[in-house]
Design a binder for these strands. Sequence first.
DNA 1: AATACGGGGGA
DNA 2: TCCCCAGTATT
Length: 370
Amino acid sequence: MLTGTKLRAFRKSLLAWFRQFQRDLPWRRDRDAYRVWLSEIMLQQTRVAAVIPYYERFLEHFPTVSALAEAPTEEVLRFWSGLGYYSRARNLQRAAQQIVAKHAGEFPEDQENALALPGIGAYTAAAILSIAFDQGHAVLDGNVARVLARLFAIRGDLREPARWQRLQRSADELLERKAPGDWNQAMMELGATICTPRAPQCLLCPVAKHCAARKQGIQEEIPEKRKKRTPVSVTLAAAVFVNPQGDTVLLPPPRTGSEKVGADHVPTLVSKMWHFPTIAVTGDPRTELERHLKSECALDKKRSSSGMLSLVALGRVRHSVTYRQITICAFRIPVAKLPLLDGAKAVALNELASVPISNLTRKIGRAALA
DNA sequence: AATACGGGGGA
DNA sequence: TCCCCAGTATT
């Protein structure tokens, strides 16, 4: 707990540090709500360095809320392709449509309406309203939580709801109400650049003298490292058909709701984006994929039954989705004509980016080209 | 309350 | 290679 003179000194030091040393980031050029919103959504669970190129391309293509609202969803996903957490992009566009319909195209300036938008929770609402409109909402994200936990030497799992609530109250008390936007960014900037998860740079910290963890020499022990779920290995077999023109076949994202996801959960593992025909396998990938293609895709109907399919093994592709470690055995399958799979689309193998795909599909495509 | 969701940067 | 994420929605 910081009060009185010490609280004022803490605020002054951190704010001065931020104003002098903040990184020059694309979304800090102005405080336009749409830009702040877009950056905050992209930054959820995603590093600054990864976001920057996406942010600039996305903004160039969808310069306004209404441009985003009116665009085909496939187009929005294409510009998100590779960034991950694709529900963020779908929610972003739904929110844009909601803003056009209910708020005359302007991002709502009140917390209730902001929170009502898809993809916007407590953190993002506080971030946007404080940065764009200088409203007094304190943000609490992973960085701020870590800073506060060290500042007050709070042990234990920070994600425990009770502990998270306590951290939120601390953030609220510390908030510099004269400059909430800069203040929130300063707290996050400190966590991102100085008060890092490992090897915090206390010697460079503008508020080191206020830090309880540093006083006790336990800054490296906080926060308690989260218990990780035991990894599960999954093996997939993927079919990369290639016709003489260099086109391949991709399957569409699974339709949400109406259609039941296959028992093998393959659509989930390929991110609800366009993907190569893929199955989960337990035994020999080639055998199982061959059998699957013949039965499910009616490939043999028009061909001689001797199985003209030749599967050329490509290198194994590794990929991970949260706790799942996926190994994909990809096979290049030369064909005269691409098979007509249900809902499938023909795409040039060297231009997969013409449709929204995940990095898993991108990796397989690269392996097939090499 | 627990779980799902992608991917990459830095040690 | 492992660890840690600039969280939100769903069940």
